[in-house]
Design a protein around this nucleic acid. Structure first.
Lengths: 227, 227
DNA sequence: CGACCATTTGATATGGATCAAGCGATGTGG
DNA sequence: CCACATCGCTTGATCCATATCAAATGGTCG
């Protein structure tokens, strides 16, 4: 990112930065793939807990991960869903502030944070890429905030569009997570999520081949709902 | 942060990191104070706009700044309030994703991002500190999310406790922002914010010397509300 | 003093939560 | 292979917290 930003300052549009995933350079990606230890987690198993030392960074190889927090009264807030290729567990505090759990059976790469930090001290690109990942996560969380102040329909529409970008096979979206997970991510109840989905079905905006498989029939309508 | 993290890994508690504000090392703070250009903004004036190239970083010297976004239908969501000493405008995207406005008359230091990036390329500490700031902002935004799924009373209580930590003179909190700003930060209406405050007054939890000056009479009660 | 703006207070409406029941898929044991 | 339990999801009825609409109050500045 440091080099990317430097390059950007010499090019007017800096479009090159946007081109081709992943957005962070290959040094970090390679480092993670090289020094990361593969681990497997079964469905619903804990990957790390709130308050645990944040000594590791995680990269999803396969499966889906949720991060969440539980409030004093038991309400659960899902912070995010992480799919293959996504990095999670990134904290700059000493301890994890969320829990992380495997939604499905998962393979992840685990990397010691101190190893990355040491690498970053030698390689400016890696340092910049660490910064970039954090910045992307920040951006994602800010988008999440914008979700939480919208109406139920807007939240669900935004969620479907987001997921379709991430797991899309054409217009079909295969959801790895339950209605409860979705509800806790969107700050709604399962009943409201369910009702909102049937509303969208009745409006022919989506189709529910099965409860976990949703076909987007009318993206413009979803985008319009997205506000 | 890189060095801090390294130091942390050799000390068990890493308490030194927590001790003494500001939490980021002095290299970056000094750099900003040294190379930053002072600028003044009058009340309600725009500092930057959404979509504007994010070429600068800002540090508040005096006054208060709000960042916000406006949804298609005109609803406004305040992303954060920045007080003296706070850094804002930090983005890893090319463009600002929020608006920034002076709530009160403000003095800020403006720093070219490319200058900091260049500095970071030479000085690992600066690079780490840039990362740290971003991580702190990420943490702040995650806390904001937790706010937005709580009840009105809980949101207002959390807001008061947060502000008291930031502008406290004992138990008195001098709010620089309007009820509308607070409402848009908490995802509530001004009426609900106002009603909730009177509720807290009636419960002798707080006192309203004036609408902008709030005395916290019972912090434990507020903390309990905070969930 | 009077105009203006921010805030509070009041009356009513409503979106989503809650409580409760039904339904369909999946799995298990007889 | 079929009764039956279980689990995730949907649907229904009702309630309630907060929004909305409207008016009153209060503080500030010319």
């Amino acid at each position: 990112m440091l080099t990317q930003a430097a390059a950007r300052s010499t090019s007017i549009k800096g479009q090159a930065v946007q081109a081709g995933p992943p957005a962070w350079g290959k040094e970090l990606a390679e480092a993670i793939d090289f020094i990361g230890s593969p681990m497997s987690f079964s469905r619903d198993s804990e990957i790390y807990s709130e308050g645990e030392p944040a000594d590791y960074l995680y990269k999803v190889v396969s499966g889906t991960v949720r991060t969440y927090k539980v409030l004093a009264d038991g309400r659960r807030q899902v912070g995010g869903f992480y799919l293959a290729g996504d990095i999670f567990g990134l904290e700059t505090t000493d301890e994890h502030t969320f829990w992380a759990e495997a939604i499905t059976a998962c393979d992840v790469l685990v990397i010691k944070r101190s190893a990355l930090v040491a690498l970053a001290a030698r390689d400016h690109d890696v340092a910049g890429q660490l910064w970039t990942i954090t910045g992307k996560e920040l951006h994602r969380v800010q988008d999440h905030i914008m979700l939480l102040v919208k109406s139920a329909q807007e939240r669900v529409a935004a969620f479907l569009l987001e997921m379709s970008q991430r797991v899309s096979t054409g217009d079909a979206v295969e959801l790895p997570m339950s209605r409860q997970d979705i509800a806790d991510y969107l700050g709604l109840t399962i009943e409201t999520v369910s009702r909102t989905l049937t509303l969208l079905v009745n409006a022919s905006t989506i189709e529910l081949s099965s409860s976990r498989r949703i076909v987007l029939r009318n993206r413009p309508a979803l985008s319009r709902l997205n506000g």
